[in-house]
Write a protein that binds this DNA or RNA. Structure first.
Lengths: 230, 230
DNA sequence: ATACATATTTAGGCTCTCCTAAATTTATTT
DNA sequence: AAATAAATTTAGGAGAGCCTAAATATGTAT
């Protein structure tokens, strides 16, 4: 095993800001506001203004006063790298250590900041080069590239669609625990038997066995890949 | 899996100070001086004085001005816990990720600060409750207790002693790599065939096969358990 | 016991990351 | 368009953890 030494040039705080900006941008598709960052990071908005000026000076983000921030290419690479590490650690925690999918987030939030390219390479190999984390979120490669999968919310599907459940759009413990309790797992096949016009609730058949009623709030947050549409 | 939440009340810096104090005390058996701490932590002595006053106020160490510091029971528990985590992670890195024994220290220095009792419990279980790390250093239990093994430096042995190599007293990469190169591994059986009076070099037979000459500097740093003395 | 060398502490200061309060800008309502 | 509300920035400040330079204490050699 021969590797190049990793040098620390990004602080924990910086990593967390970049990650938060990345995630908020993913969610809204727009520039990220000071207040959304402040809320996400649980930090005072004035402190956020301070800090984003610093990382803007480092060219990790572009900042338009009173408008918001965006990641530069350099910032995006750092952010994606943290997300990659976070997801790999989550796979390990679930597959190798026996944690449940709703128990791993906080631990991975710590592990993601450990710096060692060798470690991540070996971990990735050890895990068998997983494509997605335990919630179905895709794991980018070492160069920060994602593979497109064409998944979309179940709510966008039609009656008769046969789909595979591949991820969640909502990561709260309550949602994850609801799915666990309902015995709905990643990889399950869902057949849309009927859709209630009034409240957008879905009647689905899971793995050709159980029939289940899923509320709008649930089907909005189940990401699926269409297997057969008729 | 149900566990109690771990609360962070010790900073990274504090953890590193306590660990350093523990290790320096282990080595010398005496109070730990400001300068030795400064050197060990690569920090200015004046900064050390500052900081030890703070952790003394928190009753993690006892501090006698101009004399040095010692861990209190509370400080000792924290220090041992970090060491426990460090050693468990080293076992994982070597046994599961394929790192060599001279490659794991810096990575474990980061991992040891991850806070989650659940994680450590699961890791310990995953590893099969190891008794020692890849260098033979004992792993204390969750309560901070060490098991005594009665190991001692090979240099204290006599001609004819048959011993098992169980640990190293020196952890430098150069020493570890020397042993690897010489094909001397933890668990090997060493038979002391002769001792050169003049330079304290040892002629040993390894695993009843190879004969090898070990210098004083080597035999001082090989920790062994006597299997048979005649 | 005195003088010199070494170790330790004190004093003052710096950077990082956060805060509150006040000022300013932007958005919304009427 | 003016008034109000909400978001953002500025100004001033704090604690943690580090530094250098100077002062003091401790240890050593004569």
């Amino acid at each position: 095993m021969t590797f190049v030494k990793t040098t620390k040039m990004t602080s924990l705080t910086e990593e967390n800001y970049l990650k938060a900006i990345y995630k908020l941008h993913e969610k809204t598709g727009a520039m990220v506001s000071t207040s959304s960052l402040a809320e996400n990071l649980q930090i005072n908005a004035a402190s956020v203004t301070d800090f984003i000026k610093k990382i803007a000076a480092k060219k990790l983000i572009s900042y338009e006063k009173s408008k918001g921030v965006m990641l530069t290419e350099r910032g995006r690479i750092i952010a994606i790298n943290i997300i990659r590490k976070h997801r790999l650690w989550e796979v390990w925690l679930v597959n190798n250590l026996g944690f449940k999918w709703d128990e791993v987030h906080e631990i991975a939030e710590q592990l993601e900041h450990v710096i060692s390219d060798e470690l991540i390479e070996q971990l990735n190999k050890h895990l068998g080069y997983p494509k997605a984390d335990p919630h179905g979120d895709l794991i980018p490669d070492a160069k920060g590239r994602f593979i497109k999968t064409g998944s979309k919310p179940l709510i966008d599907c039609k009656k008769g669609d046969k789909v595979k459940f591949t991820g969640v759009a909502e990561h709260s413990n309550s949602f994850l625990q609801y799915l666990t309790k309902s015995n709905i797992k990643l990889g399950d096949e869902l057949l849309v038997e009927s859709i209630e016009e009034f409240d957008k609730s879905f009647q689905v058949k899971i793995n050709r066995k159980e029939r289940k009623l899923l509320s709008k709030d649930v089907v909005k947050n189940l990401l699926v890949v269409i297997e057969k549409r008729y």
